[in-house]
Design a protein around this nucleic acid. Structure first.
Length: 240
DNA sequence: GCCGGAATAT
DNA sequence: TATATTCCGG
């Protein structure tokens, strides 16, 4: 793909920069959501008007384009649309409640800022549950106890900017599945899974709840979600 | 209308 | 598979 007419230190990058420099400014462009032919004009000339597109329509279309391009070239820059929390300072359970919205948290990472928020109604970027976030999640669930560990409460107590109730609900669903699965697999003693993945104990408060009635809801077994073990390694990154 | 949870979609 | 979205009760 790289051609060989790069000479005299004029690299491809330079050429791209020059090319980019000649591109029109964003403000010079007509928004895609705006029809090229005004509806009145279209009807006057018996032209079928373009379908109305909202900014959201445009955003989705462009997202489809980008993801199809991404799939086509399968490059390694695949985390551009993803939220990652790499610098989450986790804190232990006894430090609750945590109220540090401006700390080193989820959206403080530049990659987490939503693009073109004001210009286009973008869909929220897909959340990545890093080990830090997951740890926080588990701590909060433990703190709340099973009765109160519902998405909204968890979300509030996690106190992570931009984290939605839906994010939490989805993760909670999976977490419960793991708890149930582990319970089944290791009816007594430690299972193979514990040795394979390392294990995160089901927090005591999760078993106690507030009323203390739900003693064996999950059997008091050791449970871990794969990928969130204590080793601190996830997707090849060392988060410790 | 809000919410939680399961089912389903991407 | 991980996460998002939809669906259905309460």
């Amino acid at each position: 793909m790289m051609t060989d007419y790069t000479g005299g230190g004029y690299s491809d990058d330079d050429r791209v920069s020059d090319w980019e420099h000649g591109l029109p400014n964003v403000s010079d462009l007509t928004p895609l959501s705006q029809p090229l032919i005004p509806p009145e004009l279209a009807s006057a000339f018996s032209i079928t008007p373009e379908p109305y597109r909202t900014n959201l329509d445009v955003a989705r279309a462009s997202q489809r384009t980008m993801s199809s391009l991404k799939g086509q070239y399968n490059n390694n820059n695949n985390n551009n649309n993803y939220i990652q929390a790499n610098n989450w300072n986790s804190s232990s359970l006894d430090e609750f409640p945590i109220s540090d919205p401006n700390g080193d948290c989820l959206r403080s990472d530049p990659r987490n800022s939503r693009k073109l928020e004001t210009e286009v109604a973008t869909k929220r970027a897909r959340l990545v549950w890093t080990p830090q976030l997951h740890k926080r999640f588990v701590e909060v669930v433990a703190h709340l106890g099973i009765k109160n560990a519902v998405p909204k409460r968890i979300m509030e107590m996690m106190n992570v900017e931009g984290l939605s109730r839906e994010n939490v609900a989805s993760h909670l669903q999976k977490y419960r599945l793991y708890l149930k699965r582990m319970q089944g697999l290791s009816s007594e003693g430690s299972s193979v899974y514990d040795q394979l993945f390392g294990s995160t104990p089901v927090p005591q408060s999760l078993r106690e709840g507030n009323g203390g009635s739900m003693a064996t809801a999950y059997g008091g077994q050791m449970v871990a979600m794969p990928g969130y073990g204590q080793a601190g390694m996830y997707h090849g990154y060392d988060y410790r």
